[in-house]
Nucleic acid binder design. Sequence first.
RNA 1: UCCUCGGUAGCUCAGCUGGUAGAGCAAGCGGCUGUUAACCGCUGGGUCGUAGGUUCGAGUCCUACCCGGGGAGCCA
Length: 435
Amino acid sequence: MQTTLPLASVKKLGEFVDQDVRLRGWLYGGRSSGKIAFLMIRDGTGVVQGVLAKSDVEDEEMFQAARKIPQESSIIVAGKVRQDDRAPGGYELLLSHVETYSEAGEYPITPKEHGQSFLMDHRHLWLRSRLPHAILSIRSSVEFALRSFFDREGFTLVDAPIFTPNACEGTSTLFQTDYFDKQAYLTQSGQLYMEAAAAAFGNVYCFGPTFRAEKSKTRRHLTEFWMLEPEMAWADIDDVMQLAENMIASVIGTVLERNAADLATLERDPAKLEAIRPPFPRITYAEALEVLAKQGKTLAWGDDFGGEDETIIANSFAKPVFVHRWPREAKAFYMAPDPEDDRLVLGVDLIAPEGYGEIIGGGQRADSLTYLEEQIAAHDLPPEAFEWYMDLRRFGSVPHAGFGIGLERFVGWICGTHHVREVIPFPRTMNRLSP
RNA sequence: UCCUCGGUAGCUCAGCUGGUAGAGCAAGCGGCUGUUAACCGCUGGGUCGUAGGUUCGAGUCCUACCCGGGGAGCCA
């Protein structure tokens, strides 16, 4: 074949209309009749229909061979790009040459329906299919948009460690591992490290995998998930809410701009995302209890919300909703006390619309050394594990605040997926460690 | 850990009050010049999750266990 032909990609076919090009990819599927064959060719950037007419190819042998190429074989083709409304995507390739680089065995994922479990067992192959491809493309945009947003806002990326020496919020949900002659744990959160970094750089964030050994089997849980955690020095709970809503609006704007085709593949209505503009509603924990009571769901003061409660609250608003000022017992030891009500701490959660639940948790951190010492004792935590953390209050303590956003819940909401395992390339859940 | 639903061909499933295994798709062969999860014909394909039990006879009923889906608690 003529290797001098320009190499095209499916995404850029529009630049080669009426030209002969080469394309390298995989056979996604196809149909054929006696004298014409349609090959769906996938190259990673998209899928294009190749049309192979018996009269157009170099010899009949190539036509007969091309009809029988097994699904997902890697192929190199040549042909003329043509605009045609009959083709999905608007362009098709009038093939003159089809060459198999590596013939595939019997491919397990067929065009018919499969169960979740079967597909996840073949996740390494399932990634090639349209829906996972669209979802993971959006995930890539979200990560890009998050980093861009924080970079524009003047935040410094400071990577937090994955191995941590001590159980900071109880051991039951931590993965334990041997670390030479000691025990180590996989990180649950980079927050305490970000508090240290904020005193060095001002505004910082970390972004990486975190681990929870919770035996949770729900559509919102993974044992390994990605979390982005910004932390700001000289900041309070209101700064947290403002940063969070600007971040979410910015990311959604990027996805709407870059991934319109992916959202269409997922049949996700962009109008629901276009409506997500700041400011988001802000209600206190006490007000949230009233919202629930009006819907006939009465909770005692101090109770945390279940998944169903979060959905009721979310459905009462058109946008994501902040719930702030929580009972001290419901939140972690490092939360700053509310100066106006000592039963409360300055924590804030953001509940996503449409039942996607809590996607952000954060708040203002306690900056008083004596208050923190009391809280560590009250929570029965080993004080020696927090010596370095207490140093942050001994050497120039400032009001500071931050939050963590769960990437998979965020992407799941944007994509409208049923389960968070669909939005991470290789999910880790209680019952799945491979592929 | 608890509650709940499920495990039958490569896949998705049907299989009635117990009577000896089915469909569609996939695969293989053949046909068809505009297909969109193409269509038409033919062919091959099974330790019914595992181990016991009841019965003349178990995919079907009983017991235990294993595996998976969904949910609760906890969380992002």
